[in-house]
Nucleic acid binder design. Structure first.
Lengths: 149, 149
DNA sequence: ATACTTGCAAATGATTTGCCAGTGT
DNA sequence: ACACTGGCAAATCATTTGCAAGTAT
């Protein structure tokens, strides 16, 4: 693997691959960066920047966290989502990127495989020539329960 | 960004209706409120709170603008949209509510009639039991031009 | 050695809140 | 009169930036 491409998703759950990508980009592998990656890897769900900073302990500085998340994102190591009005949520960029539905009434978040929204995507593409994505900004509306009311 | 002051005839009907709603709710019809309504009525596109405050002139106070927009929204007189990362945009709540598409690459905003997204809405409803809405949070993705690249 | 990074403070942008004088009813 | 409002300052929340000291390579 000598690829110099920087935007292919990280196909691994290991930190080592991310570190290699950092070095390949001429960036340094610091303890703070390793810890951020560990925290993200250890979480089942996307996290807020302040949650990550807190998880880093006493030395968790939120501005450094934001800075590193931004750099990780430029390298394709990390992705973030905006669910409703809430602050951004960050996660490792694994191969399987989920898409999200958010209920505007109960605020419940539903994560689905992209295939679940392919029909809708196709409808938008054929109707408006627009390629819909629900992995950064979610699809908003009313969940089944709230729509009933 | 359209000029709020206009030489075109102002439709006072919707303002009058809004004022009536205010009175019905036990709220007062102040000069500041009337002016906010006039500014919104005079604009072809939704406006940011600071644009409204500026349009009010020297004594345009943004916190009052936010407070009044919030109250207007509770009464159904006004509604707001979040287009991408930008601040909220406010408009009078007319009968015809548009839905929005935002390109994540070029940030272009496309306003469409709800019918244009009915096929997509139907696909989401039948597939996931979710009632999609694109009038508060827009549909994000890539516009035709950006999708080509 | 020398960039790159960190941590802290301070700035920013959007929105909200506290307070009190002012005004609509 | 009286409660509701407006304006101003200050607070909040999420995020960004400046900078001096620290560290990876």
């Amino acid at each position: 693997m000598t690829s110099a491409s920087t935007h292919a998703p990280v196909e691994t759950s290991s930190i080592a691959a991310a570190e290699e990508r950092l070095r390949a980009a001429g960036m340094r592998v610091s303890a703070a960066r390793r810890r951020v990656l560990e925290v993200l890897l250890g979480s089942a769900e996307p996290l807020r920047a302040d949650q990550i900073a807190e998880a880093l302990g006493e030395h968790g500085d939120i501005s450094s966290v934001y800075r590193n998340l931004e750099r990780f994102e430029e390298l394709g190591i990390v992705r973030h989502v905006h669910l409703g009005h809430a602050p951004g949520l960050y996660a490792l960029n694994t191969g399987s990127r989920l898409e999200y539905l958010v209920c505007e009434r109960c605020n419940r978040v539903q994560a689905v495989e992209p295939a679940a929204l392919d029909a809708a995507r196709e409808a938008v593409r054929t109707g408006l020539g627009f390629e819909a994505r629900f992995d950064h900004f979610p699809l908003a509306g009313l969940c089944r329960e709230c729509a009933a009311a």
